[in-house]
Structures are given as C-alpha cells and as structure tokens.
Amino acid sequence: MSRTRPRCQANGFTLVEVLIALVLLAMLMLILTSALRTMGQVETRVEQRVEDADDYRLATALLDQALARASARRYPSGNADNAAQVPFFQGGPNALAWVGVMPARYGLGGRHYLRLALEPGEGGARLVLRYAPWTGAPGFDAWGQAAGQVLAAPASALSFRYLDPGTGQWSPVWPPAGVPVSALPANLLPGAVALQVDGPTPPWPPLIVALTPPYATDPSATLGSFGGGTR
C-alpha cells in the first residue's frame, strides 16, 4: 500500500509581484534623487548669495575708504590767474579719477592715483578700480598699465553725481560746469559723491560717500577732521 506525499506549498514571489516591487523601488529612488538634487541646488544658491553679499560689502568698504579721503592737493592749472587752483579730482558723469589713500588692509597702503570706471570684459562690462602709486605728477593717464580690481560684474551702466556743499545741489561733473574756482569749497572738492551701478547681482543700491580729505592736504581742515565715508 503506497502512501502519498503532501504537496509542498510555494514560498516565493510571483513574477508580477517582483515587477511591482521593482517599479516601486525605482519610483522611490527617483524621488530621493530629485530631493537630493533640489537640496544641492538650494545650497548652491544660498552659498552664491552669501558670496555675492560678501563681495558687495568688500567692494563698498574699499570705495568708502579709498574715495572718502580723496586728496585735496592742488596743482597749477596753467592759467596765471588760477595758478595752483586745480584739485587732483576729475569727476565725470561715467568715470571718476582722483588721488586717495589705499587702505593698508588691501596690501597696498599709501597715496595712489585711482580711477573708477566701467571696462569691457568677458561676459560684459565690469566695474573696475584702477590704482597706481602716486608720484607727485599732476595727473595720470596710463590706466591700461595700472593694477586693477574688479568690484562688480556684469555692470550695464555707471553714473556719478557730486554734491556742492555750498549750494546743496548735485552736479553730474566736478568741478561743476561754469562755476568759477572762487565759488568752490576751500578744498575744491565736492562734499559727497553719489554712485549708481546697474547690472550686478545682487543689485547695488545707490551708494553715497562723504568726502573727508586728510588733514595734510586740506587747507580748510582742522586737526579733528579724520574719518571715513558713509553710505
């Protein structure tokens, strides 16, 4: 008499169940990958914004310190009636050149010829501060050979205005057109310079720097007239 063996029950998964599990796993991996990519992009944007904000603070601090203490030294204008009555300050509507003290914290220090203007570059125009050691000459034109530092890029437009402390009016050039030397302040310099830069990211707000010439070069200064710019 033969005995029948009990049938063994199958313990594995069917093909349909395996396919469903693989699809669910693939969807989970896709969601996780997308979430990680989004987190990475957010972190990159945050780091870029922090870097841009730091660049802006450094640029404006440099301008504050270099421009605020513009030299009030004078040199002969070539006109016998106004000899020694021209300042080391050439303020135009789109560029500014002056003699000022570069902050020692930037590794330079000392009096320099400086110019702030837009210059062409990769990806568009850039706001560049050019500087060269001061030699005592009444002017400096070799800006192409001068050292430079990019303060903002890209920059689509740059404009300046200059405050006449006597009238309280802003002028697009300095000295103001048609104003005689005798009508200018004793140091022949504007009371403040307003700077507007368009194009950088993040956008630059208007920057106003009050000028406080060093005592040694300002014939109208008092012993307490040392200071920096303000925004």
Rank of each mutant, 00 (worst) to 15 (best):
S220K: 03
P154A: 08
R115Y: 03
R161I: 07
G191D: 03
H112Q: 11
G12Q: 10
A70M: 03
G107A: 01
Y106T: 07
G123D: 01
L223S: 09
N187L: 09
G178T: 05
F226E: 09
N187E: 13
A125T: 08
Y113K: 00
P206N: 10
E122F: 09
G224L: 15
H112T: 00
V50F: 10
A10F: 14
L32V: 12
S220R: 04
V173E: 12
P185Q: 07
A80Y: 12
A66Y: 06
Q41V: 11
A83I: 12
G144I: 01
M102T: 00
L15K: 00
G107C: 00
P180D: 14
R45E: 14
R69G: 14
N94C: 06
P190H: 08
R37D: 11
P154T: 10
S182V: 14
H112N: 07
G110L: 02
S159Y: 05
T222M: 03
W134Q: 05
L118C: 00
T212H: 11
R126L: 12
G78T: 06
P200I: 03
P185D: 06
A21Y: 12
L58R: 15
A53E: 13
E17Q: 13
G124I: 09
L30M: 14
T60M: 08
A68E: 05
S77C: 15
A10M: 05
D198T: 13
V16D: 09
G92S: 11
V50M: 10
P185T: 09
V128D: 03
P76D: 14
M1I: 13
F160E: 00
A21L: 12
P87R: 05
A194I: 02
A137G: 09
A192K: 06
E43Y: 09
P175I: 08
P138W: 01
F160T: 03
Y215N: 13
A194V: 04
S159T: 09
C8W: 10
W134F: 15
P206F: 05
F160D: 01
T212I: 13
V173N: 11
A132D: 07
V193A: 06
P76G: 08
S2D: 11
Q90F: 15
L63R: 02
A97H: 10
L195G: 02
V46N: 10
D81L: 15
I208D: 02
F88L: 15
P120D: 05
L62N: 04
A95H: 14
Y56K: 11
Y162E: 05
A59F: 07
S156H: 03
S225E: 13
S77P: 08
I31A: 12
E43Q: 14
R130Q: 10
Y113I: 00
Q90S: 12
F140C: 00
E122I: 02
Q196C: 00
G178I: 02
R57Q: 10
P203M: 02
